[in-house]
Write a protein that binds this DNA or RNA. Structure first.
Length: 319
DNA sequence: GGGTTTTGACCCTGG
DNA sequence: CCCAGGGTCAAAACC
């Protein structure tokens, strides 16, 4: 199950230094010049309409507007190849996003073709990538799916840095669940940064390969240049234990960005509004019964309990 | 000792 | 209004 990092790294990772990290690519792409990359004008549409762009490592279009049944086949095939899926919000989606995607593909390595397609069902889209279901045409959020062969290695430069697809940020797993739509268990990760609202969902195949990764929100902080200390130290442990993410992503993964181009993008610069959201973190945060009884009145609903990002982790103190 | 992962239960939203 | 599904929390265990 655990793929050898070496395999993926050396196998498909020509040079991580070039790409650095996935996020970096995104960030850089956006930051640098969103329109620099050749992005189909459809992207703009994405902002309004849900679109899905799927390209396989070879640059072939895996799926288009409506995911066809065979599309899911593609996903399966991708297993062996890294694929990146971006699922930006319709409103947030912009050329920049596409640019990111395109950039992520790494020009030197393999520039993935970005296609945009209209999705039928937003929700379905989530696993569409994986299973692709024929959903009836409906207006939904847009989704951009881009698969690049180099992507995974890009941010996976150092397989040593596992940590659920190390992309330059620290992630903390806060849950795992088996979703109906997916045959693989879905893991939920949150950026360990104090105010970073970024979350990502990772679906791993039994092979330990990442079947799909969905990023939500954007990082409102610079990514770490170095992998999590723990990752480095326990890189082995993780791999052997349960986090074969690294391998996963290398084997073949789908990365999707939701809510704004996902991670690595400059939220502030691109979407100031997002900042607010970030600040709020999650107003809707569901509070456990305990909180209810204890902070029933205490929480005005706006008091974001940032101190407790998740579990006992810290955050507020982060300094 | 600190941080992360695991796992079950709880809560919310959508159909 | 009820049910199903998804997402999140929290305690314990592990590294």
């Amino acid at each position: 199950m655990e793929l050898t990092e070496v395999d993926m790294t050396s196998a498909s990772k020509p040079s991580s230094s070039s790409l650095e990290t996935f996020s970096e690519l995104l960030t850089g792409a956006i930051d640098s010049s969103p329109s620099s990359v050749t992005v189909p004008s459809e992207i703009s549409v994405a902002a309004i309409r849900p679109k899905t762009v799927r390209v396989n490592p070879m640059g072939e279009v895996l799926s288009t507007s409506t995911l066809s049944p065979s599309s899911h086949n593609v996903s399966k095939q991708l297993e062996g190849k890294p694929s990146v899926v971006y699922k930006p919000l319709a409103k947030v989606v912009s050329k920049a996003t596409l640019s990111l995607l395109a950039t992520m593909g790494d020009p030197k390595i393999a520039q993935p073709h970005i296609l945009s397609q209209v999705n039928s069902d937003p929700q379905r889209m989530r696993f569409d990538t994986l299973r692709l279901t024929n959903q009836p045409p409906k207006p939904v959020p847009s989704q951009v799916v881009v698969t690049t062969e180099e992507e995974p290695k890009s941010f996976g430069g150092n397989v040593n840095v596992d940590r659920s697809s190390y992309d330059g940020y620290n992630w903390r797993k806060y849950g795992q669940k088996q979703v109906k739509g997916s045959e693989y268990p879905r893991s939920y990760y949150k950026c360990t940064h104090p105010n970073c609202p970024v979350k990502k969902k990772v679906e791993r195949s039994f092979d330990g390969q990442i079947a799909e990764i969905v990023y939500e929100e954007q990082h409102n902080h610079p990514k770490q240049q170095q992998p999590p200390k723990r990752s480095l130290s326990n890189a082995h442990g993780l791999m052997s234990k349960s986090s074969s993410i690294v391998s996963d992503r290398i084997g073949g993964l789908d990365i999707r960005l939701r809510n704004g181009e996902g991670f690595g993008l400059s939220t502030q610069s691109t979407y100031p509004n997002k900042l607010q959201s970030l600040d709020d973190d999650e107003p809707k945060r569901k509070r456990r019964k305990n909180e209810n009884e204890e902070q029933e009145a205490g929480t005005s609903g706006e008091e974001v309990k940032e101190p407790r990002i998740f579990g006992h982790n810290v955050i507020g103190s982060e300094t």
